[in-house]
Simulated scan of single mutants.
Amino acid sequence: MNAPVRPSAFKRDLSAEAFPPEHPAVNFGRIGVLLVNLGTPDGHDKKNMRKYLKEFLSDSRVIETPKIIWWPLLNGIILNVRPKKSGALYASIWNEELDESPLRTFTRSQSDQLTERMGDVSHLEIDWGMRYGNPSIESRLKALQEKGCERILIFPLYPQYSAATTATVNDKAFDALKKMRWMPATRTVPAYHDDPSYIDALAISIQKHLDSLDFKPEHIVASYHGIPKSYFTKGDPYHCHCQKTSRLLKERMGWDEGFLITTFQSRFGPEEWLQPYTDKTVEKLAHEGVKRICVVNPGFSSDCLETLEEIAGEVREEFEDNGGEHFSHIPCLNDGPEGVDLIETIVRRELQGWI
């Protein structure tokens, strides 16, 4: 087998002397890693929320309704009503110190910590971006290329694959690459829903949280972001990936059958989504006399609106209003040691042959 090609082996004479005087020198010989998360508005005011929601809800991977039906609804009703409501929700979780959403704070920190950990690879550039909002995928790919990255690893931070998440990140990345005269060689990180390092990271993080509580939960609810049921019937593997994550986590933790309950949250519109629904499940548990539960979000790499406001806020209230007494939201892996360990493990593996 041929030995992997090292960066030094494909360096060329691209110094300033190799070009006519009117051309600048070209950077080369570096490798890039781009961490990508879902996205965030630049602010929670109506203008910024409208801009963010329009980009998000215009994505045909997210909303598969024919545009002739969807666009009048989106532009005539939704974008005139939803920005104010969503802005108020974002305001309730906003990082006021940095004037940004927690998702941006965590993703930047993950990138910064990964840069420090990968310091042994001298020719590596690590950056981060968002599928919706800023910093955009296109802007960060351009920045990496300008720094001399001829090979780039794109890392969608979604453990479970869905066309509405992982695929749309890759779509946007390749749309940007199509515009480049000199396109870098590119790899994308696959789903890691059943990766032992991911299951271990979840298990360690969850156990730390459980050890910090003053109560013992009767159930733990694993709440994943939902997708319309029709996407699943068309062949999206997301539901299967979520179920496998839950099964492996249950086995890793040694929990009894029925202790971990898998549910789906954040449904939108009149269409049926993956079930069981998180809010209805938690309400049912309370009605059945369950007094103590924890909710964990294995499908989110970082806490965001859907975990901090919807789960830790709304779902908590539903449980307590219906008779529940003790509720705890287990934080996502975020930029904690388990989360960054996981990202580093995956990046080093996916860069094999390049570094």
Rank of each mutant, 00 (worst) to 15 (best):
E314K: 04
R349K: 13
F155D: 00
P102S: 13
L342G: 02
T233S: 09
N322K: 15
Y90L: 15
L74Q: 00
E317W: 03
R348E: 13
Y52F: 13
P41S: 06
P24I: 13
N334C: 14
R82P: 02
D45H: 01
D200L: 13
P66Y: 15
P24N: 08
E64Q: 03
K216H: 09
V26D: 11
D279H: 03
H225I: 05
G148N: 08
T165F: 06
E314T: 02
R181H: 12
P276Y: 01
S15M: 14
D279C: 08
L210R: 03
I126L: 07
A163M: 07
A163Y: 14
M1K: 05
L274C: 09
G258D: 06
S302N: 03
P190Y: 12
D171N: 10
Q160C: 14
T188D: 01
V282W: 07
D195Q: 07
P190G: 09
L57Y: 01
S58D: 14
V296D: 00
T188Y: 10
K216S: 07
R131G: 07
G226V: 02
W354F: 03
P135M: 12
L14A: 11
V33E: 01
F155I: 11
Q145W: 02
L124T: 06
Y224M: 12
T233G: 01
D127I: 15
L144C: 06
M130N: 04
D59N: 03
K179F: 05
A286R: 12
Y132K: 05
N297V: 12
D236V: 14
